[in-house]
Write a protein that binds this DNA or RNA. Sequence first.
DNA 1: AAATGCGTCAACCGCCGGAGT
DNA 2: GACTCCGGCGGTTGACGCATT
Length: 252
Amino acid sequence: MLKTVDMTSSSGNRSVARKITTPCCTKMGMKRGPWTLEEDEILVSFIKKEGEGRWRSLPKRAGLLRCGKSCRLRWMNYLRPSVKRGGIAPDEEDLILRLHRLIGNKWSLIAGRIPGRTDNEIKNYWNTHLRKKLLSQGIDPQTHKPLDASNTHKPGEEVPGGQYLLEPNSSSHTDDTTVSSGNGAGKISNSVFGDEDFGFCYDDKFSSFLNSVINDDPFDSNIPVLSQPLQTRDFIVGTSSSLGHDQIPKDM
DNA sequence: AAATGCGTCAACCGCCGGAGT
DNA sequence: GACTCCGGCGGTTGACGCATT
């Protein structure tokens, strides 16, 4: 059931109408819009004291008029001490490009490999900078191939340079090419991994593979995943949260 | 100086999968 | 197995600031 409500942003007078469906956002009295310094301080001090997690009950416990999702997002994307502020460095940009070419719009996976960067930040940077940059260079941002040739290869087909293409819309939760996030299972179809269904996932080889991408050698022959399709049991796919920054190679 | 256009990015939405019951 | 709760993800929106007219 959808219902539309009128809401006024806390930061302006312009009212907006949105379709509200999620329970946490239908609660009356919940504040929306940009966070104030005071709210930030409350959230930070509460998490320092109580730790992360139990997001849905956190606002009530902390005395915030925000939904749990909003608190989590604010913490993850802005308030966490490990979040790096400032512009994306050229080496970070290069890494984003290479990882995106490999795994598509898996922002959390990409973020998990770039210290201090959040999935939201990388997604924004991609949409506002890199996408346009590639387009201006005549490169399809989705396939990373020349635009005029982008229709000549089917998704999953090997392309010059040893790269493989993910299926279109690989970002969808429901398609067959999802690279699983979190501790969920997923499938990378016709990619470098072969047409494998990753119903069970283990970390080491995929992690090594991403590390090799980070280290500019995605097709290192020492990495078995690249010389032969991996078996389902060979993978686990981490996320920005499950792949902590302490797991990122120091030599990045 | 005012109006308009455009780019950026914080925040929100809808959905999904896992865990617990 | 069905259901609910929760955390997390990717896509999208819109407020805001800057540039241009």
